[in-house]
């Protein structure tokens, strides 16, 4: 039985003019990396603020580590590390001092805080820059310092709001790998919000799609893709030399035998095969065996980009 760490029930936040989060139900289990995926303004940050007790929900209930986040924000904050999207540090302090301050605010003694801060700076690869003023840090370095700061309280849960924003691609990869390895080593539950699908895809065990304050779907990326495109996620178009009008029904029946194929259409000398899995090779070899001379094969797979397109850019009609 998986232990649930974050439980949201009918969580709603209304501002004067708009509903930022609308009846959100979500459970995140211990040790997993959950990606909250949605465009800007979808209500991701509001949800996170409610999880930390930094803002009060209009209605509904947010529970973290078995505690009500609205009623016991202090206890929740002791177990949850939060990296805001626009992280800032005290520019006049060195990276190390910034870290030690947060460590001490979490109840560490001065020497303990120093020790742990040094170790964490090593882990996130900032050991060489630890005495530099935080004001001189680059965006990527700040983000890593932020991660170290989140970890200094030895959290059970870490919440990262848009952690990849503004870092260059190689920095993103490094950062995400770091998160992933830390989560796996220490069994930390990670909730990560992003509007960047490919970043989420790299590390998340499960993903929730979040649009206009509503959770549209959640699950693994594969299962999401499957559920969204169960009728023909992959389309193979084969162009043969001569239109085989008299053999049409026979060829159609033949192709429908291929595992995963859901529909076959023949238009002139084009065969359009829809399938739930990638089986282009099988389709082609069936056609070759049936004596068709193949001129051209085109393949189209629905992937994450299409998920994105479909949900986030309001393409309501099925693709």
């Amino acid at each position: 039985m998986k232990e649930s760490v974050i439980v949201l029930r009918e969580l709603t936040k209304r501002y004067a003019k708009q509903t930022a989060v609308d009846g959100l139900n979500l459970t995140v289990y211990r040790g997993e990396i959950f990606g909250l995926l949605g465009p800007n303004g979808a209500g991701k940050t509001t949800t996170i603020l409610m999880l930390l007790g930094l803002t009060e929900p209009t209605s509904g209930y947010a529970e973290v580590c078995g505690m009500n986040a609205t009623r016991n924000p202090i206890d929740v904050k002791r177990k949850v590390g939060y990296l805001p999207d626009n992280v800032g540090f005290y520019d006049y302090m060195s990276g190390l001092d910034n870290l030690v301050l947060i460590g001490r605010l979490n109840g560490l003694g001065d020497t303990d805080a120093q020790e742990r801060a040094n170790k964490l700076l090593d882990d996130v690869g900032l050991a060489e820059n630890k005495d530099k003023k935080a004001g001189a840090y680059s965006r990527g370095m700040k983000q890593r310092l932020g991660l170290a700061e989140v970890l200094i309280k030895q959290p059970e849960v870490i919440i990262l709001d848009e952690p990849t924003l503004g870092i260059d691609p190689s920095g993103v990869r490094e950062f995400l790998t770091l998160i992933q390895s830390l989560s796996k080593q220490q069994g930390i539950t990670v909730l990560l919000s992003s509007h960047h699908l490919h970043h989420v895809q790299q590390v998340c065990d499960r993903v929730g799609l979040f649009v206009d304050g509503k959770l549209l779907a959640n699950g693994t990326i594969d299962s999401l893709a499957r559920s969204l495109f169960d009728e023909g996620g992959h389309i193979t178009t084969v162009v043969v030399r001569e239109a085989a009008a008299e053999k049409e029904s026979w060829l159609t029946a033949l192709l429908q035998q291929v595992p995963g194929v859901t529909a076959v259409a023949i238009e002139g000398n084009e065969f359009i095969v829809k399938a739930t899995e990638n089986n282009t090779a099988l389709v082609v070899s069936e056609l070759v065996n049936a004596g068709q001379a193949i001129e051209e094969v085109r393949k189209k797979s629905y992937g994450l980009d299409d998920i994105y397109q479909r949900y986030f850019e309001h393409h309501e009609e099925p693709i």
Binding site: I74, N86, F89
Partner: peptide, 14 residues
């Protein structure tokens, strides 16, 4: 404005 306030109140302090 410097983004340090969010960080600070995300710590277990009143």
């Amino acid at each position: 404005n410097n983004g340090t306030l969010t960080r600070l109140i995300a710590q277990p302090i009143y």
